[in-house]
Design a protein around this nucleic acid. Sequence first.
DNA 1: TAAAAGATCCCCT
DNA 2: GGGGATCTTTTAT
Length: 209
Amino acid sequence: MGIELISLPIEFYLQPTVHAAREILGQILAFQSPKGLVAGRIVEAEAYRLIDPASHSFRGKTLRNASMWGPPGHAYIYLIYGIHWCINAVTQPEGESDAVLIRALEPIKGIEIMQENRPTERNINRLCSGPANLCNALGITGALDGADLMNGPLIIAQGEPAPDENVIQTTRIGISNAQELPWRFYVKSSPSVSKRDRSKEPMAERKKR
DNA sequence: TAAAAGATCCCCT
DNA sequence: GGGGATCTTTTAT
């Protein structure tokens, strides 16, 4: 009946952050929301690091990014452009500030709830396409900032790892600093990775220039 | 106290 | 493919 949800262990969040961004593909983001269980397969993610001009933590600890400096395996959720929520999984030990931004999911469970949360989106594959869209679809808000992803109600659970031949590594989306760092990963075959995001060329192609 | 920028999305052409 | 919406957070004055 229901999917079996086993949280990723703390060790997952202690591996190097760029590895974690690669390995999080195929894992499951699940939220036991007030409306019911919603879950999706992670198909796009980016790494943000302490020494990284594009990271919110680059200039040190602030009120907004506090949970980035907190314990690994917890959520860092922030509001962008005054409108949209985005969710990260915090990596590295407490006191450091790395995180993995979750950028897209393939809906698995609670699709009718996602549709209720995003009534204008008719394409199921696009319900959770984009970091703000997926938070909107699942009902994730800043109220969950700092939440423990290993104990719920918001968790990242073990899924089917994405094989290398189906993973593409590129530069990150929507940033103005450190644009050259290839810290974004996505599942090539997924219909939930947005068109705009697909337009980024794989590094192998870029290097040919 | 003011100003600018921002890990985005949607609608329009 | 381009620009506006929208407003919080941060940084500069």
